[in-house]
Design a binder for these strands. Structure first.
Lengths: 224, 224
DNA sequence: CGATTTCTGTATCCTCAGATACATATTTTA
DNA sequence: TAAAATATGTATCTGAGGATACAGAAATCG
């Protein structure tokens, strides 16, 4: 069993491989493999365990009575799946989680994780940081959603990246299509708006990448 | 100093007053009073401490370059302010927090809280439950926002309350005006939609309160 | 208890963005 | 490398909902 990649997980940051090995030997857990497309957690299921992705890629998706799905969020190796669901008062998973490629997941039951957290302050700290960071990102997403215009949403999104990375070149998440999906707007509309921003000289837009020419211009778009 | 109300705080649930007193005597903290309108945390400030409301009412608000403010969320006694900001990677407060009435806040520095969490599993558990529940509520808010129609948003919101309380009577948060604000839609539009729902026989709508006549009807509205 | 502020109910107008469609370009995979 | 699948660029139509306005009802306050 290869625990090495785990030491790069946000949850175990700061621990040596040896420490990690020790701590995990003392903590009940099991490792589970999933094939591409297999269901890992099911929407509304009783949330008893968190997963830590060792290998592969998983995706959350909310299915609706009528069949359509939304809210696609994606996680890769090292990420923790479902902590909020497990520890929240309603403890049920808010959406389906499926493997988008063959994946290996380490499963930890709630109480075992709790014990683990008490065992090592660094893990505790990492865990809390993890949930808190998620919370902050959600807050940002809400802020994103609460802008009225598509132009504003896009500008806000670009400014976030810009501030975070400091670089004026921002990669589009996957494709414009996916980006539009994430922001919950229609693709043609987003495209329309991007072109407008380009005409105004705020950005340069070549599919797959956007260069921010005028952060101030974008900022102005937000302040109505 | 009256620690009694604290034992009803979500953070200290399960501890006796005596235990609480002991544990707090061992934990560095200070108590701060704020007048109505006074600023407790400032947007973008380095987030070093969390607050626990002992008395009063506080409000978060995001101010924009142009002056307008949004994202108004309100907290009362027992609630914890700012944990996500303090423990997230960017550790800065995402918005201004002001007292809307004279308030008493207990302040805990990050590291002191961390020590406190290690001291008592129940507090640890409560704290994690607290931030996790916040996360889940944010996820729900995002789901709310990602419905396209105002009718759908309202229906989703009503169904959430209905499922949580089991009661068919749901109180409108404050006023329709405030409700509309929370959902980020215009008041006349919301009103228009509520009337439509009433005509369809899904709800009975008297200002200040809504009676759900047909949960299934509302459910159908979501599945397009 | 009158006065002022804040909420409701409702109508009218008009814009923004969603749906749809389709030709072209790009990427994937067989 | 041909074929299939997916993404892009763009145009046209339509409708949901925002802005605005205002009269009447409640609630709050000196």
């Amino acid at each position: 069993m290869d625990y090495f990649s785990l030491s790069e997980s946000p949850l175990f940051r700061g621990l040596t491989s040896a420490e990690l090995r020790t701590v995990l030997q003392e903590t009940p857990h099991h490792i589970q493999c999933y094939e591409k497309g297999e269901l890992i957690f099911m929407q509304m299921d009783d949330a008893r365990q968190v997963g830590i992705i060792l290998e592969g890629q998983v995706q959350g998706q909310k299915t609706f009575p009528n069949g359509s799905l939304v809210n696609v969020s994606s996680r890769g190796p090292g990420n923790v799946i479902g902590p909020a669901a497990v520890f929240s008062r309603m403890h049920q998973y808010p959406c389906d989680v499926t493997a988008v490629e063959p994946s290996t997941i380490m499963m930890l039951r709630r109480d075992d994780l709790l014990v683990l957290l008490q065992k090592d302050v660094r893990i505790l700290q990492n865990f809390i940081t993890e949930i808190s960071t998620t919370t902050v990102m959600l807050q940002q997403k809400i802020e994103l959603f609460s802008y009225n215009g598509i132009g504003q949403k896009a500008a806000f999104w670009l400014l976030l990246r810009y501030r975070k990375t400091g670089k004026t070149c921002v990669a589009i998440p996957g494709s414009v299509t996916k980006w539009a999906l994430q922001m919950n707007v229609s693709r043609p509309s987003l495209h329309r708006e991007l072109k407008k921003m380009e005409e105004n000289g705020y950005i340069r837009y070549s599919s797959k990448q956007i260069e921010i020419l005028s952060p101030d211009g974008l900022q102005d778009m937000l302040g109505e």
